[in-house]
Design a binder for these strands. Structure first.
Lengths: 346, 346
DNA sequence: CTGAAAGCGCTTACAG
DNA sequence: CTGAAAGCGCTTACAG
């Protein structure tokens, strides 16, 4: 194979068009201050030589790469995939590229990736941080270095952030189950960290408002994966007085609950009512169809990216912006009043 | 905020350590030819100054960016998300970054993105091409320019490729349904393009081998999305002699079939047996659990990336390498012998 | 084991 | 509207 097609530079184009390099640069960057006739000659020369701008050289001089970094826990989670797509769509519209990395919720890996992204001179960063302390230090340092940072899904003091309203989700889900007549409502959520505070208090507040006694054993701050939801459900159902309803706050946990219910022979909603979260596609074809707290990850990604670009454009104030996106409860059959609930409420 | 922390360069480190820039460069790149004492002095100076290498400058000179491009149809598809993760894991291990873009199966967008990635001087590319003609021209051009290309999911003459064995998947799925006693087996697959040839012939061959008459109306080369699977199913069930079994060859099409079956009031497998594809998580909790052709997207991504790095290392021969990954049939209840099938085969 | 020189391909800042 | 000069921060190729 002839792998030696000559690569032409701005110099070559300038020579062929009979102008200086700066004039070529002006044409390529769409400057208005070029005579139409000159512009045409330059464009023609560029076409003839198959000229392609070397972004590296331009960025080295200008200090801007038009690359943003994005750090998510794991792209395999459809929720994060949606956020990534939202960010990419906005970036694409603005002519930016996205370097995407997975942290796996590992602080060490996050730090290493941040270091590499800085070496690559990213213009900005969108990140789901791993840890309230370690991540905050590293990200604040980025921000000090004039690299805008937008935090996703979690909040970090001093930085812009976009997130779903996890507490309102708990409110909606638990209230819905209570409205359907259930009184022993379990809450299965990811591990408790300082990044996601207030879930227990919100849960208690809903119960209190409805005059229902609070039983701490019905709250499970468990893991992130299917297995965690599975184990939590089995533990809950072994309680002396097991729950009659449950809210699982992530897609993976929801799937774990369903698998456990299947293995335990529990009918839904008769033996256990369920509100799940964040599965748009398959929740309609489970039996019964699931009641779901639905968030809109693509919107979140879009809004986060727009916030980042506002910073890049200098169009944002000094104070950090915090945006909370609402979610909606999509009612299926898995949470409707079942036999158990009837006897409990009568 | 004080946004003016001074950024130190290799020059600053050299001065502070009392050595030349090249020596600092050697230390940073782990060259063996540096005295231990010199190395320590340089590292200490780098720490003192919070030195961070500017990858742009290094790449401009060396001609290597340690960035690879990845073009997928749409990251929202969990199958592609798996492939992306596989690629990222290998890249991360090798200290490479991945710029990820979505083509949305749009040839224009693909061409534009390829152009931008080349401007960013990617070292290599992993791509799910949109079109057998247009993509081939653009990708061959990349390859001519010494930028290795690995094609995923589809094959393009002259280029390295990794893919699932889609024809074997058809063989397995259709044969399984026939073994269960079904004789009117429909095939619902994505649109026919030259990128995915031979599906019809493979399907016919399986029927012929089993002495079953071929009915072209039972093949639907439809779209990529849920809606396409939905519409295809409704059309198929309106036939004078509708199918008794069906193989839907992608996750989105499978979901469409399930939704249509639900809306048509079809019991699975009694009214319609089903083999679906590529949903690892939720296929276990549908009612009944689905028989699935399962592929391993993460493996495919990994293998594709390894192939790319073999090219980058110069460890691959001149001839293109083609790797086909096997898939496996995971038996659920949706394809087991139902009432219809019994009467048909008796 | 170490260094002086050149250069990668652009854009910036300035001058006219 | 156009150009001469300088420089972004590294690595390469060479010399010693």
């Amino acid at each position: 194979v002839s792998k030696n097609a000559p690569i032409s530079t701005i110099e070559d184009v300038a020579r062929r068009a009979g102008v200086s390099r700066q004039t070529v640069s002006r044409v390529m960057n769409g400057s208005k201050w070029v005579a139409a006739e000159t512009r045409d000659r330059v464009l023609q020369a560029a076409r003839d030589l198959q000229y392609r701008r070397n972004a590296l050289a331009g960025s080295l001089r200008s200090g801007r790469t038009r690359i943003i970094g994005m750090l998510v826990s794991n792209i395999l989670n459809p929720l994060y995939a949606g956020q990534v797509r939202g960010v990419q769509d906005v970036a694409d519209l603005r002519g930016y590229q996205v370097i995407l990395c997975n942290t796996d919720e590992d602080v060490q890996k996050e730090r290493r990736l941040l270091e590499t992204l800085r070496e690559h001179q990213i213009d900005g960063l969108i990140v789901i941080p791993c840890d309230i302390t370690a991540s905050r230090v590293a990200l604040a340092d980025l921000y000090q270095a004039s690299i805008p940072v937008v935090v996703m899904n979690r909040t970090l003091r001093g930085l812009d952030g976009v997130m779903f309203d996890g507490l309102d989700e708990i409110r909606q889900a638990v209230q819905h189950l209570i409205d359907e007549g259930y009184r022993r409502v379990a809450l299965v959520t990811p591990p408790v960290t300082k990044l996601t505070p207030g879930r227990r208090g919100t849960y208690r507040a809903v119960l209190r408002k409805n005059g229902i006694e609070y039983d701490p054993r019905l709250i499970r701050h468990t893991g992130h994966d299917v297995q965690a939801g599975y184990a939590a459900t089995r533990e809950l159902m072994r309680l002396p007085r097991p729950p009659t309803a449950m809210y699982a706050s992530t897609n993976m946990l929801t799937l774990g609950v369903l698998l456990a219910a299947r293995d335990l022979g529990l009918r839904i909603p008769d033996d256990l009512a369920l509100v799940g979260a964040n599965e748009e596609l398959w929740s309609k074809v489970t039996q019964p169809a699931l009641t779901m707290v639905q968030v809109h990850p693509h919107d979140l990604g879009r809004v986060g990216a727009e916030l980042l670009f506002r910073r890049l454009d200098g169009d944002a104030g000094d104070a950090p912006t915090l945006i909370r996106l609402p979610s909606q409860l999509v009612i299926g059959e898995s949470s409707l009043a079942g036999g158990q609930a009837m006897t409990t409420t009568s």
